[in-house]
Design a protein around this nucleic acid. Structure first.
Lengths: 195, 195, 195, 195
DNA sequence: CATGAATGAGGATTCATTCAT
DNA sequence: GATGAATGAATCCTCATTCAT
């Protein structure tokens, strides 16, 4: 027989996730500054004060959304990559997974893509750590590409990330799919070097 | 020989420009939402109410900063490009000018680079118009590149803009110069086709 | 016997009513424009921001005061009128009740009497609706007066309302009572026709 | 030959009158509190600071408008009255003139009719003095009515003023004319006593 | 005479957050 | 666990007014 307190847990986690979802939604649409605690609470059909049972502050709430976003992209990229053997194929698959997360309604990932933490506030520094955690994966993929100088690898990484994350600004749902976009963008870099 | 009709003006415009500079500075560092009118006023050693002598609202102030940013990048790109003859060289020179504006202390340009207007607020729609005005220039350069399908041109444009604008997130003043960065990034796309 | 379903409520409504009272007081003394949210808050020993817990805006707060004012006059007129049988007596009793509300410390009624909504702002249009709701009662009393043409009824109504509401400008507490004033004013119109 | 300084005067007075007109217009439409100095200045195509060449403050500007309003109604009532011989006819003519000023686009008179000064602010006390100056005229007309007790006279005055000034709230330009309205309203009081 | 520039006080409202219930 | 109430600081902006030019 299970004890009561483990029976109660899933309920709790469920509530937490609801709030997190609402927060992701709001932050993805409005950003950290313009997305208010009130917005989030009302999106979750809850009073603002209730949020503080689960999250210490707006900042930590944002951080949790951000971390969850990183986790999700990471997972989807990891999954996508295993089926590929050749380095450039791996990179392309990773890019496709990255874009799919970003462009198809996963608000958590959108928050990660749109929030480029700068400055030296404590929050931002923590966000950078989370983000790096993810970007390391890409660095690894790029590292294994053949025939590239270290410098080229560095610039390829920056350019690829910039190009991929910018898609949120021009992507149009009906048209080219995230996979297609990934193929085309990676293709721009790939042709010349993958010989 | 100077014309008479602008005598006296510079003084008047001077104050306006000071305030505009302060605003550019604040908006570049904090963004539209987090950059408050108070911040800007105190950066200009002025009372917040004084700003409203020159600008009708925070939004129009931001818009003016944005427009000035667009104007500056545009001018610097136009200037940089004339000395180049071959299409890829033109593009590289344009990218270099773009990055120089962005990365070297020109807050106006930074505002343009970091503000990617989305959504349908009236302000954002106006910003998009200003921005398109500038991007058209780049489209023209890319259009003249040889041996590229229309699709490739489209993706090249999106990827290049994404890669260039993302530099603000990782650029470090002491290291590679904007020109060098531009050369490397354009180089990633260039090699294969520019033969 | 009290029902259970409102147990606990009075406490909650109590606070709201306090604020409404403070607002009525301020609006009655200074009017809508000159009566500030700060005035009201400090009259209620509360922070201005606390008002927004109960009322969405200064306008809706005012509207609630106005509606409550209408409700109170209406109730007092309805009560006063039932004891009277003859049409002119009914009208006089109504006028007396109207003036009593207006002149004796009921800030809510004073707000109604002093705010003559004009113009086409959304607030004013709503106020007119509330006011008409009340004036309809008087129209009914006047309608039942004998020996009056429709035109005379119309002018009697306008003149009587004008005369009654203007009393707030000259009424002096120690002197003629509201009832006496009502009797005299109605008497001016009454003599000739009530035969 | 006229000296220069008397030649210049009319110009100045003309300007002053323009500003006064603009102020009357704004105050009539919005009232003292909601009508801002900016509103007035822009209605007069002038900078706010320019107003202070002619008027010491918003309050004194309002007071001048008010005084001018009183002067105008007074004049028009005086003129209207001379052609009448019988007391009730005089009163009716006065009421007609009063209403004509009020209802037909004379913003100055409207300000007087709509501003019922209360309270003990210095401005309001001065306004009351101006207003009394005018009301004395009406008191005189009423005083000469035959067969009325003093009390009746007092109430007649208050009621008549109330009824007349309230017309601004329901008057509709196309319908009954001010003269007609005056005739009807005075008629309500007149019939019974003018025998 | 007119005004552009500036101001400090105050306008209504929203903010993230706390806490007793 | 949830919330209604409250808060103080901050939000953008408007106010009437002053004064050097």
């Amino acid at each position: 027989m299970l004890s009561n307190r483990t029976v109660g847990r899933p309920r709790l986690e469920h509530r937490r996730l609801e709030l997190l979802n609402a927060a992701a939604n709001v932050f993805a649409r409005k950003g950290f500054d313009a997305g208010s605690v009130r917005d989030i609470a009302s999106a979750a059909n809850v009073q603002p004060s209730s949020l503080y049972h689960f999250f210490g502050s707006k900042e930590t709430l944002f951080e949790e959304v951000y971390m969850e976003g990183v986790r999700r992209i990471k997972t989807s990229v990891e999954t996508a990559v295993v089926t590929q053997g050749r380095p450039w194929d791996k990179l392309e698959a990773a890019a496709a997974a990255h874009l799919t997360s970003l462009l198809e309604d996963d608000f958590f990932s959108v928050v990660v893509a749109e929030t480029i933490p700068k400055g030296t506030s404590e929050l931002n520094i923590r966000l950078i750590v989370h983000r790096n955690d993810y970007e390391k994966m890409f660095i690894a993929f790029i590292d294994r590409l053949p025939n590239l100088t270290n410098d080229n690898k560095k610039y390829l990484r920056f350019a690829l990330f910039g190009a991929l994350n910018a898609t949120v600004n021009w992507y149009q749902p009906g048209k080219d799919s995230p996979e297609e976009i990934a193929r085309r963008i990676v293709g721009l870099f790939r042709v010349q070097l993958d010989t």
